[in-house]
Amino acid sequence: MLNQQLLGSASPHIRSKQSTQNIMWAVSLSLVPALAFSAYNFGFMALAIVMISVISCILVEAICLKMRGKPFAPLYDGSAVLTGILLAFNLPPTVPLWLPVIGSIVAIGIAKHAFGGLGYNIFNPALVGRCFLLAAWPVEMTTWQVHGITGATPLAIFKEQGMQQLLSNFGSKPELYWNLITGTIGGCIGETSAVLLLIGAMYLLYKKIITWHTPVMYIGTLFILGWLFAGQQTTFSGDPIFYVFSGGVFLGALYMATDMVTSPLTKKGKLIFGFGCGLVTFLIRKFGSYPEGVSYSILLMNTATPIIDRYCVPKKFGMTKGAAKPNGA
């Protein structure tokens, strides 16, 4: 009756269709609107930088896998492509084309594979790449340009010359907000358009790839702290809307802080993580000499992830308050 050998395997014998690959490609896909906008805002060079970054990330991944004697299967999981996109999104549109190549080597080679590859890295690879470049080539990494005109980012203007200067540049407050939200401002390739990043994140929320916990807590914390303390005069004189829509907050909160590998497992842990990111971003912006702060805050909180996980172990069934014994036994 049976004319072949039966397969053996451990239960369960059905699996969901969700895979690591699907997740990585879905995140990459959700970044496409922001990518298209960057081409419009910064010109063709932005696209070229993204392309070079993605290709070099894939190449570095292949070389690392070869060196480590691992199968090439992870090459197709899309994680290198995603790192490439995110790395390029964190670079100014004016960088020389060899810069993303070096960034990729640091991101994939050091931040990812030196720690054991996908799933074992402690730091977000794209952010490590960006911070390395920022430290090594500070001039290239802080030269901003929109539509061919060189100029500082809104955050840098705010930091150095204050809100008044910013308002005179943009005309009025509503106009400033409009530019910030749509993204027609200076900044890194992928970080400027808050609204398109949000649309991408909505897709990820719908697909249940990210949860609201980290981004809401991150942006919320920054909103309140900015409102309270970012103003020149007393408390509550800050401009919280400007504070959260400027710089890389949306890219960081929606895409970098939600990176599964380097953020906590539980919802409670994610809330703590988001709060920490918001707090550190605020401290860097307020007291540091650097106008940004998103990348460093996330990298710093990455180091806290293991300890957050250790203290946010979920309550077991049978250990909660409901587990009272009606018999008094």
Partner: peptide, 12 residues
């Protein structure tokens, strides 16, 4: 289907 086990990506 035969499943190949990948590393945990800590999706939670």
């Amino acid at each position: 289907a035969k499943y190949s086990m990948g590393p945990c990506i800590r999706c939670g």
